[in-house]
């Protein structure tokens, strides 16, 4: 067993040295939605301890479609696909410095705090680069492959690498087959015709209250937003129930409505709930009104 442990130790040291002295691929290549979520949490916590952002936008895979990279200096999108705003709020509570403004997506309030994700992404080992999610040997290898391939075959492979974070999402963002889209919308219609169990919604609202009070006590201004979904779903029982619950529990807080964010745009979505690329870009433009005008002035 001595050889086994010695080999492990040598590999860890060699890998750490490699990470220290070798330039990493320009964009991290992440293996899945789970890895993407972990990456967003790890990166957020590192960012907040070094160079805190002014505005935090949190949500689910719906928010993951929104690209705020133009304001990357002061806006951070903590969108956890397949997960919840509650988890992201719990992460925000863990960060050293609290952002001034926090916008919370309300579309999936029933999802509880994902303690495993928080545990995995916030352990002490995350201070060591060899244990950070974007530095996994296989992900790095794929990143270098992408980089190498990009030199020979720019259009196809670069596309893959650049879209990786978005591609870990549940559904494609463009080129969606119409039959498949209609099937997905029918599925969502079935879901939205129902309502969330009232006891679960009540319990989650209490958690939102708890987290938001804590964050406000640290100086944050918290607001909510409802991302536009397929028009026929907007007034179905589930959507109305969720909207009304937030209005009831947080009457003093600003709620950016789906109407404000879509602003006359026809929303088709890729599956009833996830925006298509062009729709997401339009929504980001409409969101801009609620974000800091000039990031550099905040520095």
């Amino acid at each position: 067993m001595r050889i086994t442990f010695a080999v492990t130790l040598c590999l860890l040291i060699a890998f750490s040295v490699f990470l220290k002295f070798t330039p990493k691929p320009a964009k991290p290549t992440l293996q899945s939605q789970w890895a993407n979520n972990q990456y967003l949490v790890e990166k957020y916590l590192r960012t907040q301890s070094i160079n805190p952002v002014d505005t935090l936008i949190i949500g689910s895979s719906l928010t993951d479609r929104l690209d705020f990279s133009e304001k990357a200096n002061c806006v951070y999108r903590l969108s956890l696909s397949g997960d919840s705003s509650l988890t992201a709020l719990a992460v925000a509570m863990k960060s050293g410095k609290t952002p001034k403004n926090i916008w919370v997506e309300i579309n999936y309030p029933e999802r509880d705090v994902n303690l495993e994700l928080i545990r995995d992404a916030t352990g002490y080992s995350k201070a060591i680069p060899a244990f950070q999610i974007e530095n996994r040997p296989l992900s790095l290898a794929l990143g270098y492959l992408h980089q190498a391939a990009a030199r020979f075959n720019p259009p196809h492979i670069i596309g893959d690498a650049e879209q990786q974070e978005a591609k870990t999402d549940t559904q494609p963002t463009s080129n969606i087959n119409e039959t498949v889209r209609q099937n997905a919308i029918a599925l969502q219609t079935g879901i939205y015709k129902g309502q969330l169990q009232s006891n679960i919604l009540l319990e989650r609202m209490d958690k939102y209250m708890h987290f938001i009070k804590e964050l406000e006590s640290k100086g944050a201004i918290v607001g909510f937003f409802e991302l536009p979904i397929y028009p026929n779903l907007r007034e179905l029982p589930r959507a109305v129930q969720v909207r009304e619950a937030f209005k009831k529990y947080f009457p003093q807080h600003q709620l950016i409505s789906f109407a404000d964010l879509s602003n006359g745009l026809t929303i088709k979505t890729s599956d009833g709930v996830h925006l298509q690329e062009n729709e997401a870009s339009a929504v980001v433009k409409n969101f801009d009104f609620y974000l800091p005008a000039n990031c550099n002035l905040l520095r």
Binding site: L12, F131, P137
Partner: peptide, 21 residues
């Protein structure tokens, strides 16, 4: 020696590349 080394590599990957539990 090679067998023990292979277990060393596996342990390294358990530490650096575990999937979601």
């Amino acid at each position: 020696f090679l067998k023990d080394s292979m277990y060393g590599v596996m342990l390294f990957l358990i530490l650096t590349s575990p999937g979601p539990s």
